[in-house]
């Protein structure tokens, strides 16, 4: 039996709102955290949890697996690279990672790619374009 054709009331029901992308952001700089959070949440397609270091990020992943991690490379304590390594050690199927870095030397970017980063965003980033850049890197094609 095919469903749907004889159920007009179901067809009239509003479509569920698309789920927001759950992004976990770790950066030790409070200003950068605030700007990136505002930029990523600005049109409601994503919601951001944020923290100031790698250890807190790992705890947040343990509490609820995000769709994406955005990690600053240079943080005190557990830096971005070490956080990603630990994430891969702890989780067989870790969420994708995008690095944020102020160092744009080609060799450093290559190192980050070799670690398995999905994408690398260099600082300064354009807050108005950050969300689109993230969505494109995730292969989401409905970028406005």
């Amino acid at each position: 039996m095919e469903s749907g054709a004889s159920a007009p009331s179901a067809a009239a029901a509003p479509a569920p709102a698309p789920r927001r992308l759950d992004i976990l952001l770790a950066d030790d700089d409070a200003d950068i955290r605030e700007i990136a959070t505002l930029a990523l949440q600005r049109d409601g397609r994503a919601e951001v949890r944020s923290c100031g270091d790698g250890a807190a990020a790992l705890n947040a992943v343990r509490a609820a697996r995000p769709d994406l991690l955005v990690l600053d490379v240079m943080m005190p304590g557990l830096d971005g690279r070490a956080t990603m390594a630990e994430l891969r050690r702890l989780h067989p199927n870790p969420p994708p990672v995008i690095f944020l870095t102020a160092k744009a030397m080609p060799e450093e970017l290559e190192q980050l790619r070799q670690l398995g980063a999905r994408h690398i965003i260099t600082k300064p980033f354009d807050p108005m374009k950050l969300l689109d850049e993230v969505l494109v890197s995730l292969g989401q094609t409905d970028v406005r």
């Binding site: 700089d29 700007i35 102020a102």
Partner: peptide, 12 residues
């Protein structure tokens, strides 16, 4: 670390 933060914010 302090210089890195200054660099990052100033660039931003």
């Amino acid at each position: 670390l302090l210089a890195h933060r200054l660099n990052g914010r100033a660039a931003m």
